[in-house]
């Protein structure tokens, strides 16, 4: 039986008295996913560790990148996504790292096609890294695979411990949660255990690192995580 209109025709394309029914069975994200797969293959072939950083605006993603770049000796490129301005790209560019700003305009997320074009404009090196700072938004970017090796969601202590269950799609899809601005914990009523429980409840496999990118506390755990994730592809 045709499950859409309830008729008894078994063919995928069939006629009714007043309409013609055509089975399509296509994912709305198929095009994006195809571009993401092309990016993923490029990363694999060139042994590039690519990381998609996601968070709400103001969680400290750019500061985290700045402090990370300071510590890395490997070749690195950065893609910055924002609705407007090149302020983040300017900050990263001052560190001497190749950076490409994508302004999404009215768009609320980066997609895999944008990343592919940004990659063409960057001198990506074999065995290097690519950091992608997504648009600050805990909803839309969760849907769009960029082909990245890992998704890192940055949550800051000032946002409250319930963000993982308020925005479950984002935390469900992340490999690592970085709880940033830990230096502010003494001044906040932030329940660390509840935050971790909330993150684990939407994603039992999520890894968690607590740090202050600005003050340096916990950053070694993050550097260790990065190094560990790059090893399985090839030694660097």
């Amino acid at each position: 039986m045709c499950t859409t209109c309830g008729c008894s025709d078994h063919t995928t394309t069939h006629n009714h008295d007043d309409h013609h029914l055509i089975q399509v069975e296509k994912d709305l994200l198929e095009k994006n996913n195809n571009y993401a797969q092309m990016n993923r293959e490029y990363f694999f072939e060139h042994n590039i560790l690519s990381i998609n950083f996601l968070s709400s605006p103001g969680s400290g993603k750019t500061t985290l990148l700045e402090k990370t770049i300071d510590q890395l000796s490997q070749p690195l490129c950065v893609i910055e996504g924002d609705q407007q301005t090149s302020r983040d790209a300017d900050r990263i560019g001052q560190l001497g790292v190749p950076v490409k700003q994508i302004n999404t305009g009215k768009g609320c997320h980066l997609d895999a096609h944008m990343i592919g074009h940004a990659m063409e404009a960057l001198p990506l090196s074999d065995n290097g890294l690519l950091f992608i700072e997504n648009v600050g938004n805990l909803v839309c970017p969760a849907l769009f695979d960029l082909g990245e090796n890992y998704r890192v969601v940055v949550l800051s202590t000032t946002e409250g411990e319930d963000k993982p269950i308020k925005y479950p799609n984002m935390f469900h899809s992340a490999d690592l949660m970085i709880l940033n601005k830990s230096d502010l914990l003494p001044h906040l009523e932030f329940n660390l255990d509840a935050c971790f429980d909330n993150a684990k409840s939407v994603n039992p496999n999520i890894e968690i690192i607590t740090c202050s990118a600005l003050r340096g506390h916990g950053m070694q755990d993050w550097f260790n995580w990065l190094e560990k994730k790059h090893f399985p592809q090839k030694k660097w």
């Binding site: 859409t4 209109c5 013609h20 029914l21 055509i22 296509k26 994912d27 709305l28």
Partner: peptide, 8 residues
């Protein structure tokens, strides 16, 4: 998020 079918 799948287009199952269309009618024409």
């Amino acid at each position: 998020l799948t287009i199952q079918s269309v009618e024409a």
